[in-house]
């Protein structure tokens, strides 16, 4: 009944990155099995240069004051260098399957968590390729061979970059969604005041989107708590016009359908005047001026039901 929190899934699953997408993405980056085989052949080259490449890479990055901020202490730097060595060697594994994709996606998601925007790692990838170009031209005597090797690296690194950006965007949207859910939660603070009695103090303006959220939250809680009555206190709602009154009526009707009752409290003289002047019929609602009276009324409703139900 509740909006279920989805079980943790792999990033590839979340992004719907399946075998078909892998194929299509590889085609777009012109990343063939030949490229992977060539990279695998360069494994000794990679192992030989691994430490210098990573050192070089971080020298460049850490010399930029703003980029440096992502690496606050030596411990962090040691850790990322270790990760970077693994990352580097994986480029020369000669494998580009769904497991590889998942691994690369995690890199992007991790960057989102530390707030590192794509511009930083696009720049970092460029440094990477520059270093690799120097090393490969120095190591491979045949220029055609060196060029082909570099092309293969370019393809795989480009492919990696696209994954990192996909993951970053998805993680960002997810963060946004969670913030919005938290805000929604805060804007409908349903409190249990007694067995079978709930209270929702509404504060702030009610537009139609919020009105819908209120209705949904109220219904779920009434059912979840088996509440017989919910008191909605509108003392904190600045403007009660026809639209707001209509939303409250709809919520009352929906709560009735699931078997509960709405008691409206916190009605100021001005709100009472507006409601009458606007000609809104709220005769189907239980209404009282003060919250305390509302609670009494609710207890009466519940008590009455319980005692007569028991006879």
């Amino acid at each position: 009944m509740n909006r279920a929190v989805p079980a943790p899934r792999s990033l590839s699953e979340t992004l719907k990155f399946d075998a078909r997408e892998l194929n299509s993405r590889r085609t777009f980056f012109q990343l063939s099995d030949d490229d992977l085989a060539r990279l695998k052949g360069l494994r000794p080259f990679a192992e030989r240069h691994m430490d210098d490449v990573v050192e070089d890479f971080y020298r460049l990055i850490l010399s930029h004051p703003e980029a440096r901020r992502f690496f606050p202490d030596d411990e962090t730097i040691r850790r990322v260098k270790r990760l970077q060595r693994d990352y580097f060697l994986q480029l020369f594994d000669g494998v580009c399957d769904l497991a590889y994709v998942e691994n690369r996606l995690r890199v992007g998601a991790a960057h989102e968590r530390i707030g590192m925007a794509p511009r930083w790692y696009i720049g970092a990838y460029r440094h990477y390729l520059a270093i690799l170009l120097d090393r490969i031209t120095a190591d491979v005597p045949d220029p055609a061979e060196a060029r082909a090797s570099y092309q293969s690296m370019l393809r795989l690194v480009g492919f990696d970059m696209s994954l990192a950006i996909d993951a970053y965007i998805a993680a960002n949207l997810d963060t946004l969604g969670r913030h919005q859910a938290a805000i929604r939660e805060l804007s409908t603070p349903v409190i249990k005041v007694h067995d079978h009695i709930l209270l929702l103090p509404l504060v702030g303006a009610i537009d139609s989107e919020r009105a819908q959220q209120i209705m949904e939250a109220v219904l779920l809680r009434v059912i979840g708590e088996k509440a017989r009555a919910i008191i909605i206190d509108i003392a904190g709602v600045p403007v009660v016009d026809t639209r707001v009154a209509d939303h409250l009526l709809k919520t009352t009707a929906a709560v009735r359908l699931v078997g509960g009752k709405v008691i409206l409290t916190g009605i100021s003289a001005q709100v009472a005047r507006t409601i009458v002047q606007l000609g809104v019929d709220i005769s189907t609602m239980y209404t009282v001026a003060e919250l305390s009276e509302g609670i009494e009324l609710a207890l009466g409703l519940v008590g009455k039901q319980i005692s007569t139900g028991a006879t």
């Binding site: 209705m215 709560v255 699931v258 509960g260």
Partner: peptide
Amino acid sequence: GMRAEVAATLVRMGFAMDTVETALD
């Protein structure tokens, strides 16, 4: 036993079944 989403949908459509008495379960 009407579900939350069913109640919300009916009310939004403008049919609140006013003539029927209801209970939670």
